[in-house]
């Protein structure tokens, strides 16, 4: 049923693209925009997923974490903070600079490592 509906809709769209230049251009622009958005979202996700500042700090220390944060966009850093709950009291607030966000991540990861070290001694 769905397949049939889509087929007939696509046939109408294809016919209109053939007859209507303005419509064709509009459609093209929209497709490009969608593809761009998708690429951006994927790139962002690549910078975030599989990366855990707490783990990196424990494994390679402050310098290692600094290094790992370097090539990530501010948008990615923001998401990283959110995913790993690194700013539970929202100290970042509305105005977010790269320096500030990196600082928050470093502090949180260090706190976490220290706390875990104590837990190992529970």
């Amino acid at each position: 049923m769905m397949e049939k509906t889509l087929k007939s809709l696509m046939a109408i769209v294809a016919e209109e693209v053939g007859n209507n230049r303005v419509f064709a251009r509009k459609l093209e622009d929209e497709l490009i925009k969608q593809a761009n958005d998708l690429t951006k979202a994927r790139e962002l996700e690549e910078q975030i997923s599989g990366f855990n500042p707490n783990v990196v700090f424990k494994e390679s220390g402050e310098d290692g974490l600094k290094q790992a944060l370097k090539n990530r966009s501010v948008a990615a850093l923001k998401q990283i903070v959110a995913r790993h709950n690194l700013d539970p009291s929202n100290q970042l607030g509305g105005r977010v600079t790269r320096g500030k966000i990196v600082e928050i991540i470093l502090i949180a990861a260090e706190k976490r490592a220290k706390r875990d070290a104590k837990l190992f001694d529970y």
């Binding site: 707490n54 995913r83 709950n85």
Partner: peptide
């Protein structure tokens, strides 16, 4: 639960 994923990574490293 987003935090579950974060914690999984930590558990795996510890």
């Amino acid at each position: 639960i987003v935090l579950h994923e974060s914690e999984v990574q930590s558990l795996r490293s510890d």
